[in-house]
Design a protein around this nucleic acid. Sequence first.
DNA 1: GACATTCTGGAACATTTAGTCCGAAACTCC
DNA 2: GGAGTTTCGGACTAAATGTTCCAGAATGTC
Lengths: 210, 210
Amino acid sequence: MFQNVARPRGRPRSFDESDALKKATQVFWSKGYDGVTIDDLVAVMGLGRSSLYGIFGDKRTLFLRVLRAYAEAKGARAAKALFSPPALRDSLAGFLRHAVEAATEEGSAPGCLMVCVAPLVDDPEVKQFLKDAAAAGLALVERRFRDGISAGEIPSDFPVTARARQVLDLARGLTMHAQMGASRKTLLNDAEEAADLVLLPRRGNAAPDV
Amino acid sequence: MFQNVARPRGRPRSFDESDALKKATQVFWSKGYDGVTIDDLVAVMGLGRSSLYGIFGDKRTLFLRVLRAYAEAKGARAAKALFSPPALRDSLAGFLRHAVEAATEEGSAPGCLMVCVAPLVDDPEVKQFLKDAAAAGLALVERRFRDGISAGEIPSDFPVTARARQVLDLARGLTMHAQMGASRKTLLNDAEEAADLVLLPRRGNAAPDV
DNA sequence: GACATTCTGGAACATTTAGTCCGAAACTCC
DNA sequence: GGAGTTTCGGACTAAATGTTCCAGAATGTC
């Protein structure tokens, strides 16, 4: 038989840790950092105050943990959107579409924890984390462009870094637009157009044969 | 002689109203809505609590007033950036440059009250105001594109609305990027490139002779 | 100079908030 | 079954926060 997974000693927890983290994510996401009270968290996460403090630490620590988990999941999905489709254009459209869909998910608040909420948190650790995450996102898109050059989809003098930065700016802009109440349908349309735009050849260069 | 400007009765104020509003703007801008306490405002605005409540109303009312004043000023500057330069390309670059400069002003917090702070305020009046402001911004850029069509700078089938939306998305993205700590120099560079990008002809269309 | 009016400074208040503490509960190990 | 360990639930505390109140000060009006 299988050995039972070693149950820790003591009284078992009455809640699921990762589930509670997801709930906490939603709370921060919809109310911002300063707008969230411990009581909000306790009410939604399904545990008592002492458990919250005992297991997750204080508000700031919990937020950092939530942020890291969120960033990891988002990064993985972004990478998948970028590197699964064979055609570069579909990669970019998928990347932007994913940003829009995440920002307009029903059942979640509009916007994005990393783009709309975290930048307002006055904490050096959060700020550094965001910088690193932004750099990682940029590197991802740049890599996809370089793959596109190798595959002959775009010319070798394609302005990789500049366009990658624009892709991220567009994604951030779409996300903020979602937070401000734009509809998913509209934003998805914008995302498609943005994907086309970014791939346009520079003025004076010949269009690539696709 | 000139008639004295009718001084109101009663004890005169010990502070300048519009100056106090500007100070309040900075406070909300840098700390977000929930992050600001009345004590913060009192300390910076140079008046007492009672004066604050008596003259500006409660926190929410004050924020709305700050937001409206901020939006008006920003709108005026955006319109100037858009409609002063004769060349469309310079208009767009100026518009985006202005967004970047406002978001990276020294002495102010990075980012933008309307783009980064207000969307997180949980208040229907604020949300509606933001929607209206976004629509107004879009209309402004669309108008500038139409002027460009009239002047023959871009073809008559230029996708005015789609590109205008992209301009605003890029501006929002650059602003959020500023909030996340990107340098003014980098962002100004991105703004210039974005202006060029948005004016590229659609694939398959002839480039306009400029 | 008396009065009405408007603002000021600070005290006062009720509520909310982050964080702590402790006895009781639920489990494992022996 | 008892000892040891971990979590639970809720009471508790100290500080903070938004808002109100009031006596007094500084001005115009008559």
